[in-house]
Amino acid sequence: MILLPSWWVPPALLAAVLLLDVALSIRPLGFIRMCLHGVRFPEEWWWILLVVKVLAAGGLIAGIWVPGIAFAANSGVIAYFLCASAAHIRAKATGAAFRVNCLGMLALSCVTLVSSFL
């Protein structure tokens, strides 16, 4: 198994997208607020999602130089968006926000893992 990404751009791009998501979620925009309310995620826990995404972005960046870290962080991001997808499906909140945000990020995370480590 390759423990360093074959090219640094995909993990850096995923990290940048995650950090952009964090920036947009500090004071959630309407579509983010609607998404979180759609799955009935308690507002007092929203900050945890920001911490998880910042840590994942940090792991993706550190993993460009430290063997295994980017792979673990990327795998964690995939697990995060699989859980988010399950929450959306369970709550029957499968509208445009689910397809664009959740499934889009899941696809980007999977493409990043495949293109960087296989």
Score class of each variant (00 low, 15 high):
M1Q: 08
L3T: 15
L3A: 13
W7E: 14
W7D: 14
P10C: 14
A12D: 08
L13H: 02
L13E: 02
L13S: 07
A15M: 05
A15T: 04
V17A: 14
V17W: 03
L20T: 14
A23R: 11
I26P: 01
R27E: 08
P28D: 07
L29K: 14
F31D: 08
R33P: 00
M34Q: 07
L36P: 00
G38W: 02
V39A: 01
V39K: 00
V39Q: 00
R40P: 00
R40T: 10
W45K: 13
W45I: 05
W46D: 10
W47G: 09
V52C: 05
V52R: 00
V54M: 14
L55D: 04
L55S: 11
A56S: 12
G58L: 03
L60Y: 01
A62V: 12
A62P: 03
G63F: 03
I64F: 01
V66C: 06
P67D: 12
F71M: 07
A72W: 00
N74H: 00
S75G: 15
V77D: 02
V77S: 02
V77W: 00
S85G: 15
A86C: 11
A86P: 02
K92Y: 05
G95C: 07
A96I: 14
A97V: 14
A97R: 08
R99T: 09
V100G: 01
N101T: 12
N101V: 12
G104N: 04
L108W: 04
T112S: 10
S115R: 06
S115C: 14
